[in-house]
Nucleic acid binder design. Structure first.
Lengths: 197, 197
DNA sequence: AATATTTGCTAACATCCGTTAGTATATTAT
DNA sequence: ATAATATACTAACGGATGTTAGCAAATATT
């Protein structure tokens, strides 16, 4: 009887969630089976249910874990007394950092949230919509202050967020430049594209 | 017994593929069942198999249809005698146009190709890799000609392609700006971010 | 009109899925 | 050491899935 090994400061449930994130990223939520997950954890499928309620709960944990981190960062950035363009840069850097260091969770939260069930689904969608609105508001502030080009702010947000999602490909690429170079390149292109000089 | 209605110049198979694209976009390939598809086509599930070989074949059709269009455009752009930055702009415009006018297929090809089965899977991945290499080569040419900022070309390609993928959100948004405005905004940000002035 | 072909239907299959029940074993608390 | 709890196992369930077989109706061809 092989128990799930746990590291310091982490429950068995957290181990399962983490393995689930990797699996959902690789195969997609629907295509990843509980039996797959069990194998990756090193246990029989039924045993997982001593630690979790359902497969969907795993997706909740992943998606809201990520969403909460972004929301807190947004609170922090908004509260700061920096220019709009600096705020944008802070957010982009955070996104890249999250994508680099919590790759699996962020990726899954981005692409698999559709499979959440209500009320989590609507909750998640609302949070996502709010985040984008707040991001767009910062860009609009930048436009008013003549720091940023006159563009459609919601469109700019879409571009930024999805561009960052592209790190997914970088992450799995064989010849990757290092993370700090990657960040600099992205900032150059994205902030450079927004900035009014 | 209600037959599948066909428009001029389209087979019944094409109708099915088109409905499949819409369904795969909405639910994801794995979550969309053949019974779902049958209902959307207006027929029983088994009847679909008079026109197609398998569910996966539908995904082949969608993914390679899209991939071929992009490859042909790349041939055309490469052959033209324009500056590198103009080539980049042509490609971006084509991507946006494809995303706006063939939304479902492009979206599915982008996000669901994982579920292709070999040998189609490796074939598709190779095509995708080649396309990006050719795109990156154009950017590198632009850097040599001092049209484009000194950035990592593969990273720039990732950003561009994923940024365009963001049109997905625009497409379903309720308050969308019109397609031509969208394109202009994207060109401003993306080409503006690359250009060395 | 007769025949051949295409397209649809119902029924059923084998397989996989998430999950539960019941039980055995390992760990922790007393 | 004993009791209590946490964790794992085997077995099985009901339901969904992709697909096939066999047959009926619609359409196309002669």
């Amino acid at each position: 009887m092989a128990r799930i090994k746990i590291e310091k400061n982490s429950s068995r449930k957290e181990v399962i969630v983490s393995k689930a994130a990797a699996l959902f990223r690789e195969k997609g939520f629907k295509a990843a089976s509980m039996r797959d997950l069990a194998e990756s954890v090193g246990v029989e499928a039924a045993s997982l249910y001593n630690h979790i309620k359902s497969k969907t709960e795993l997706l909740h944990e992943i998606c809201f874990g990520v969403a909460n981190r972004f929301m807190h960062k947004m609170d922090e950035v908004e509260a700061g007394s920096t220019s709009a363009i600096e705020k944008v840069e802070q957010l982009i850097r955070f996104h890249i950092d999250e994508m680099v260091n919590h790759y699996e969770e962020v990726y899954v939260s981005d692409r698999e949230w559709k499979h959440l069930a209500d009320p989590y689904l609507s909750n998640f969608q609302t949070q996502r919509r709010m985040y984008r609105k707040r991001f767009a508001a910062i860009i609009e502030e930048g436009i008013r202050n003549k720091e940023i080009k006159k563009i459609d702010a919601p469109t700019a947000v879409l571009i930024l967020l999805h561009a960052i999602g592209g790190i997914e490909s970088w992450h799995r690429s064989t010849q990757k430049i290092n993370a700090s170079n990657l960040t600099d390149n992205m900032i150059t292109i994205l902030v450079g594209g927004l900035e009014l000089k």
